[in-house]
Design a protein around this nucleic acid. Structure first.
Lengths: 349, 349
DNA sequence: TTGCACTTTGATAGCGCTATCATTACGCTC
DNA sequence: GAGCGTAATGATAGCGCTATCAAAGTGCAA
C-alpha cells in the first residue's frame, strides 16, 4: 500500500465552502477573518458551510497572500530561563496552527542603549514580539518597540503597562493565598525570601504575603524577610540568614522555586527535616519543584497556556488593519496552589 | 517616519536571483533545493547570486507550491525532559530558516501497542520525526515509522541503528575521559551511579567508566556501582548506599546531572563538604549542573546544535525524490568536559 | 553527418488565499 | 421615485514558489 500522494485533494478549500454557501470565495474569506461588512445572515450561512465541511484555512496560502511575513520573536535572557521550555512548548503550540514562525533570541545586554539598539533592529524583522520578564520591564525595549508599532505581549509580567498587552497571573492574590495556606497550618513565624527587585512580580508577591499576614492580625517581622534574586545561590544565602536566627522561622516562603529548593538544601545541611522541622514553599512550579525531595508545594503559573494565548493575541494584533486602534488587553489567567510534600504544621517547641 | 508598508518589496524573490544569475527562476529553485540535474557551473553562478543578494526562500510560498506540509514532529516524554528547552531552542533554530513547521507532542505511553498506534497515526500527519531518548530506543515506534517511510532522526541516542539516522556524542569516550579526569586527581575509589537501563547510552557510559579503570590497572569494585534511573530520586538512594559503606568512595560519577545533584545533596546532609570530602561529577550539562552549589563538573552534550543538525538532516531526507535510496547517517558530534567546582583531590584519610 | 538517448533548462500553470477595485444592493433624503 | 451615499458582494490579479512537461543542448554510435 503506497502512501497517498500528498499533492492535491487532501484538504477542503475556500472555494468548496463558497460554493456550498452560495457565495464568492472572497465573502468566505471575509467571514473567517472576522471582517466587518458582511451581513449577519450571510455570515451564518458561511459559518454553517465551514462547520459542515470542517474547513480549516491553509496557513501557508494565507500568509503568502497576505504578504505578512508573520515572524514572531520570543526574546529571553538566561536568568529567567527556568521555565523556558514550558514557554517554548506553549508558544510552539500557538504557532503551529498558523503560518506564523517563531524566532528565538537571547539578549543579555546590560545597558539600556544596547537594548534600545537591539529592539530597534528587531522591530524591522518581525511582526510581533513576546517578552517574558525581566525584559518586559525594560522601558528602553518597550518604548522602542511601541514606537516602531510592533505589537508586543508581555508574559508573566507582574503589572499591566500602558500600550502593552499582557498575559499574567495575579501574583498578589496567589502569594496571599499561599501565605494563607501556611497560616492555616498554624505557622506564625514565616520567613520570606524576596525576588529580584528588577521585576514587578517580586514586589507584588511580597505585598500579597504582607496582606495575608495583616489580615490574620500578624505583624510582618522584617528580620524574617530576606532579599533574594530568584537564583539558587541567593536562596542559599537568604535561607542561611533566616535559619541562623535565635528563633528561626517554622516556615519559609521563597518567591520562586529555585530559592525554595535552596532553602531545603540549607535545612538538610543543618540536620533539619522538611517538612517536619521546617516547611518550605516556592512559586512558579518549574521542573525543579518536582525534582527536589521533598517535592515543593508551590504556585503554578500555567506558562504554556499563557504563551499560547500570547501568540493568539499577537496574531490578532498583527492581523489588524492599519487604521484601527491597537488592541491592548490585560489578560489575567488563573493560577493554582499545588500542594505537595514540603508543608506540615510547625513542630511543637 | 512611517514604517514602510509591509506589503511588497521587502524581500528578495527568486526572480531577482534568477535575473542576476541569468537563468530562469526554475533553475534557481532547483539549485536551492539541492536538486540534481543542474550543471555545476550553473549551480555556482546561482549560488553566487543567492549569496550576493542574501536571498532566503519564502517559506509560505514554498510550502504552498510544493503542497508539502513540511511538518516535523518532535516527540518527547517527560522523564527525558531535562534538556527539553535546549532541544527546542536548537530545533527551532534549524526550522526557522526553512518552511518547515515544528510540532511537539508528548507520549507517555507505556505499552508498545499504544506506541505503535501513536506512531502510525503520527506517520500520516508529518513529514519527519525527531526522537530523543528513550523514545528512540523503542522498537515499536521505530519500526512503525520506518514502515511508513517517514524519515526519523534519533538524537542523543547511544548507538546507531539500522535505517535510522542518528545525531549523538560518543558516550563511551566521554565517560572514559571523565573517569580519567577523576583518576588524574588521584581518586581510586570511585562510586558509579548507572543510568536507566532502558537507554543504550547508560550502558555505553558505564562501559567507558570500566574501560578507563581497566586502563589504569584498577579493578571495578562492583559494590561501588549502583543502579540509578536518571532521576533525582534514584540518585538520592544510590548515593545513600554508596556513602553508607564502611569505606565510602572519594568520588562519585553519576551518569547524569540530576543524579549528581542528588549525590551532592546527600553528601551535604551527612556533613560532607563537596568537593573537599567528596568529589561529584555528572553528565549532560543540563541547567541543574549550574544551579546547585558547588557547580557540577560534567560532560557537555551540545544538544542545541545537535537538534539543529537533526532538522537539517531530516529536511534533506524529506526533500529527496521518491526513487532515491534513503539517506541514513550516523553523525557523531564532539562533546566537552566542563570542569567546574565539584572535583578536588581525595582527602587524605 | 544523422539519429537517438539522455541531461539540462525554460515556459506555463497553478498551490489556496487575500488586496484591490468594480459592481450591485440597500437605505435614506428631498 | 429620482438621486445620492454607504454597505455588501464579486471579479480579477497576484503573493513567491514548484510540478509538469516541452524544448533545447550534449554526447556518442553508426
Amino acid at each position: 500500500m503506497e502512501k497517498p500522494v500528498r499533492r492535491k485533494g487532501d484538504a477542503v478549500t475556500i472555494h468548496e465552502v463558497a460554493r456550498r454557501a452560495g457565495v464568492s470565495p472572497m465573502t468566505v474569506s471575509r467571514v473567517i477573518n472576522g471582517n466587518s461588512n458582511v451581513r449577519d445572515t450571510t455570515r451564518e450561512t458561511v459559518m454553517r458551510a465551514v462547520r459542515e465541511l470542517n474547513y480549516t484555512p491553509n496557513p501557508a496560502a494565507r500568509s503568502l497572500a497576505a504578504a505578512q511575513g508573520t515572524r514572531i520573536a520570543l526574546i529571553y535572557t538566561n536568568p529567567s530561563g527556568a521555565y523556558l521550555s514550558e514557554l517554548l512548548v506553549g508558544a510552539l503550540a500557538g504557532v503551529s496552527r498558523t503560518a506564523a514562525q517563531l524566532v528565538l533570541d537571547t539578549w543579555d545586554n546590560v545597558s539600556p542603549a544596547a537594548e534600545r539598539a537591539a529592539a530597534r533592529k528587531l522591530a524591522k524583522s518581525v511582526a510581533g514580539v513576546i517578552l517574558p520578564p525581566p525584559l518586559c520591564e525594560s522601558k528602553a525595549i518597550l518604548s522602542e518597540l511601541v514606537a516602531a508599532k510592533v505589537p508586543v505581549v508581555a508574559i508573566a509580567s507582574g503589572r499591566f503597562q500602558a500600550n502593552i498587552s499582557c498575559v499574567r497571573i495575579d501574583d498578589f492574590r496567589a502569594s496571599r493565598e499561599m501565605t494563607e495556606h501556611l497560616l492555616g497550618f498554624g505557622h506564625t513565624r514565616i520567613g520570606y525570601i524576596k525576588g529580584n527587585p528588577n521585576q514587578t512580580a517580586s514586589a507584588l508577591r511580597y505585598e500579597g504575603f504582607q496582606a495575608a499576614l495583616a489580615e490574620a492580625g500578624l505583624a510582618v517581622d522584617t528580620s524574617l524577610v530576606q532579599q533574594g534574586y530568584f537564583t539558587y545561590r541567593s536562596g542559599l544565602e537568604a535561607a542561611e540568614k533566616l535559619l541562623n536566627r535565635k528563633r528561626p522561622p517554622t516556615a519559609i516562603f521563597a518567591s520562586n522555586d529555585d530559592m525554595a529548593a535552596a532553602a531545603i538544601s540549607v535545612a538538610h545541611r543543618r540536620g533539619l527535616e522538611v517538612p517536619r522541622d521546617l516547611s518550605v514553599v516556592g512559586f512558579d512550579d518549574t521542573p525543579i519543584a518536582t525534582t527536589v525531595w521533598p517535592e515543593l508545594t508551590t504556585v503554578r503559573q500555567p506558562i504554556a497556556s499563557m504563551a499560547e494565548s500570547s501568540i493568539e493575541l499577537l496574531l490578532r494584533s498583527i492581523r489588524q488593519r492599519p487604521g484601527e486602534t491597537r488592541i491592548v488587553v490585560d489578560h489575567v489567567v488563573a493560577h493554582e496552589l499545588v500542594k505537595r510534600d514540603s508543608v506540615a504544621p510547625p513542630r511543637k517547641s
